[in-house]
Every structure is written in structure tokens, then in C-alpha cells.
């Protein structure tokens, strides 16, 4: 599903984001990318989203060599990738329903399908009754659920999460993790960057540990590595 071959990213100022990354993520996997700040987690996420291009190596996502993809091809690549951020990134002047519908409108889904899918996804993330609320009327957890609903409403095969629980209290964070686990069980591949030790330890999923831009550890089923 996702394959990185000898991927390196050196920023124009000379600092190295990541170095010599070789990573293979299979369909349906749930992978944590862990590491302290500056370890290269964010760079890796940005490379997957093609927000950045690597200076070396090849990235293949869903059989497409994204390193060879033109600018025009990026939107179609991103339709395969749901994204969830630490800061939710909801549109404050749109309701929960509109925030989710927005993601479908952008890819020009028919109104009929939008009207059918949005309520279904909102029910799935536990916001069935919050469709008419605005983001500032929601708790942090509910906002992240909205963002999650937006990320999966187009049914992408891959979900990329950048510190999705970073702004949430432990209990709320745990709720989000269960939701992610449910989504994963329905077949969606999940890549999640985090430094939440307790969550990683509790989930017992594959853990890839980054340090100074290199993969220092890759465990099939494990907890948060002390090397991070």
C-alpha cells in the first residue's frame, strides 16, 4: 500500500528532515510513527501527503510513484488519503454537517450521495445529533471526531493522522483511538504519528521509531520504544 525506498529529505537550509528511510506498510495495517519532536515524524507525514518532495529515493502509494507525480496529479493522490491533524482544522463558519459535506463537494460528489453519506459517517463517529452545531459549540473530542468524519467520508484506503490526540485529554483521546481502531478494522490502512506513550503501549500495533531522521526500530506488535 505504502512503500518508501531509500527516501531522504534535506531542506534548502541544509538540515536533514529524514535520511535513508525504507518502509513498507501493507494494506489494512495500523502503524504508529513515534519519536520525539525533531525526529522526522512531521517530515515523513508531509512526504506521504506530497506536501514535500524527497531529495532522494522513491515513494509509492497505492501503486503510484508519487515522486514522479506532476502537480496536476496531486489532488487525485490525496483523494486516496484521509488526513487528520492535531489542530482539527475545521472551518469555523460551517456546521459539522457542512464541514464534512465540504470534503465531498470538493471532489464533486453528487448532492444525492452527499445527503446519504454525511449523516452515516457522522453517526459512525458518534456525532449523529451534532450535525447542525458549529465547531466552537463542540468539545475538543467532538471537533476531532468531526475532522475524522471529514477524513473518511470519501472512503479513502489510507488514513494519515498527525498527532490526532495531541490536543485532547486522555479519556477523550482514548475515544478517538477506539474510533480509529474501528475504522482500521473496516479495512482502512492507518498511519499515525504520535508521541503519546500510553496510547501506543495500550494499542499493541506496529511501531516505527524515528530518531534524528532515521528509522531506529520497527516492531510488529509493541509499545513505545525507549530509544525514541
Amino acid at each position: 500500500m505504502i512503500r518508501l525506498i531509500n527516501v531522504g529529505k534535506t531542506y534548502p537550509n541544509g538540515s536533514k528532515g529524514v535520511e535513508n528511510i525504507n518502509l513498507h506498510i501493507k494494506k489494512g495495517e495500523f502503524v504508529f510513527i513515534v519519536g520525539s519532536s525533531g525526529s522526522g515524524k512531521s517530515t515523513l507525514i508531509k512526504l506521504l501527503l506530497k506536501e514535500l518532495d524527497p531529495t532522494e529515493g522513491t515513494i509509492i502509494i497505492n501503486k503510484v510513484k508519487t515522486t514522479e507525480l506532476s502537480r496536476k496529479g496531486i489532488p487525485y493522490l490525496r483523494r486516496n488519503l484521509g488526513v487528520v491533524f492535531q489542530d482539527f482544522r475545521l472551518l469555523p463558519n460551517k456546521t459539522v454537517y457542512e464541514n464534512v459535506a465540504f470534503a465531498m463537494r470538493v471532489i464533486e460528489a453528487p448532492s444525492r450521495i452527499i445527503r446519504r453519506n454525511v449523516p452515516a459517517v457522522l453517526a459512525l463517529v458518534g456525532l449523529g445529533k451534532k450535525g447542525k452545531s458549529y465547531p466552537n459549540q463542540l468539545s475538543g473530542g467532538e471537533q476531532q471526531r468531526t475532522a475524522l468524519a471529514r477524513a473518511i467520508v470519501n472512503n479513502p484506503p489510507i488514513l494519515i493522522c498527525d498527532e490526532p490526540t495531541g490536543n485532547l485529554d486522555p479519556e477523550t483521546a482514548w475515544g478517538i483511538m477506539q474510533l480509529l481502531d474501528d475504522i482500521n478494522k473496516r479495512g482502512t490502512t492507518i498511519v499515525m504519528a504520535t508521541h503519546a506513550r500510553d496510547i501506543v503501549d495500550a494499542m499493541q500495533k506496529r511501531v516505527v521509531t524515528l530518531k534524528h531522521g532515521n528509522i531506529v526500530k520497527d516492531v510488529e506488535k509493541g509499545g513505545y520504544s525507549d530509544e525514541a
Binding site: 496531486i74 489532488p75 487525485y76 490525496r78 471532489i107 464533486e108 470519501n154
Partner: peptide, 16 residues
């Protein structure tokens, strides 16, 4: 800007 940013992430084309 945020709106455009989100649009880009969910796969909107430049023309959209």
C-alpha cells in the same frame, strides 16, 4: 487560507 488548505488536503483540484 485554512479553507484552501483543507481543500487541498481532501483532494480539490486547483481549478475547483
Amino acid at each position: 487560507r485554512i479553507e484552501i488548505n483543507i481543500m487541498k488536503y481532501v483532494g480539490a483540484t486547483d481549478w475547483f
